[in-house]
Design a protein around this nucleic acid. Structure first.
Lengths: 155, 155
DNA sequence: TATTGTTATACTCTATAACTATA
DNA sequence: TATAGTTATAGAGTATAACAATA
C-alpha cells in the first residue's frame, strides 16, 4: 500500500501530495523557505544574509563573544564562520579584540558603523516580520512560536 | 540602538539571542532543521533522503506524473530533478513510460519494488512523525500545521 | 591532553544557460 | 513561439581532517 491509505489534499497544481500533507517537517520546511526568502529580500539592501544578521545580533547583545560561542548558538561549524566573520570585519562592521582571560580566543565587538547598520537592520527585520505575519493574528503568532520552540528545544 | 531595545532570552549556552527570539523565520528554520534531521535518521535505512521520499510519494499518489509537475509541486529546478529521478530508476523503484498525449513528456510510475519500499517508508515516516511530535498534543499538532500552511500558502 | 581559531578540501544543494525534440 | 527533458556548469551551504597557539 504505497499510498498509505491516504487520498490527501492537492497542492495548487492539482497534484495529490498524499502523506506529505500530514508531515510536520514538510510544512515546517516550506514555511521556513517562504519566510526566510522574504526576509532575504528585505535584508538585501543592507548587504546582510540571514546568518549575517544573526551573527551581528549575537555580537550586539553579547559584546566580546567568541567565535566558538557563536558557532554553538547558531549551529555553525567553526571553519564556516571564519569567512563570515572576516567579511563583516572587512566591511568595518565588527572588530576583534584580545580576549581578557584566554589568549587563544578573540572577543568580537560591533564598531560604530556596525551598530548603526545593525540598528537599521533590526528595524527592517521587524518590518519584514510584520509583513510575513499578516496572515496570522498576534495570538496565532505567539502560539506558533511557542509550538515551534517545543519542537526543537527538546532534541 | 543596535540591540533593538530587547534584552531577550538566552539559548542553552547562556548567550543572549536578542531580537532573533521574536522572528518567526528563526524558529521556523530551527524547527525545520531539527525535524528534518530526525526524519533523515529514520529514513536512512531505506536509502531515501526527504526529497526522494517526497518524489516517490507524488508518483505513488499520481501515477504517470511528469517531471515538470513534480518540479512545480516541490519547488525543484528541472535540472536538479534529472539525477534524482535517474537514481530512483536505476534502483528499480520507478519506471518511465511514454506519455499518452505528449511525446515530449514521460510518465513516471512506481515499480512493484518501488511500491513495497514506499509502503515501508510511509510507515517509517509515520513513526518518525509520532516521535517528533511527542512534545505536542494532537490538537497542538493540528494547530501548528494550520498556522504553518497559512504562512506559505499566501505567498 | 583539550580547546580556539584557522586552512584546505570535499560533498551536497541549488541556480542558470543552452541544447533537442516535440507541441 | 513555447514547453518537456536534458546537459554542463557555477555558486552557495555545509561537512571533516589537520595544523599552530594556548589552556
Amino acid at each position: 500500500m504505497s499510498g498509505c491509505g491516504n487520498q490527501g489534499p492537492t497542492d495548487p497544481g492539482g497534484v495529490d501530495t498524499g502523506i506529505l500533507e500530514s508531515l510536520l517537517g514538510y510544512h515546517a520546511r516550506r514555511a521556513s523557505l517562504a519566510i526566510v526568502g522574504r526576509f532575504m529580500e528585505h535584508m538585501a539592501p543592507h548587504g546582510l544574509r540571514p546568518v549575517d544578521f544573526s551573527v551581528l545580533t549575537l555580537i550586539a547583545q553579547n559584546p566580546g563573544i567568541t567565535s566558538r560561542q557563536i558557532c554553538a548558538a547558531l549551529a555553525i561549524q567553526p571553519p564556516n564562520l571564519v569567512g563570515l566573520v572576516g567579511g563583516l570585519q572587512q566591511r568595518g562592521l565588527i572588530e576583534r579584540r584580545p580576549h581578557p582571560n584566554d589568549r587563544r580566543a578573540v572577543g568580537l565587538h560591533l564598531t560604530p558603523d556596525g551598530q548603526r547598520l545593525h540598528g537599521a537592520a533590526c528595524a527592517t527585520a521587524s518590518a519584514a516580520e510584520a509583513q510575513a505575519a499578516t496572515a496570522l493574528t498576534a495570538r496565532e503568532q505567539a502560539t506558533l512560536v511557542r509550538l515551534l520552540r517545543k519542537l526543537y528545544s527538546d532534541v
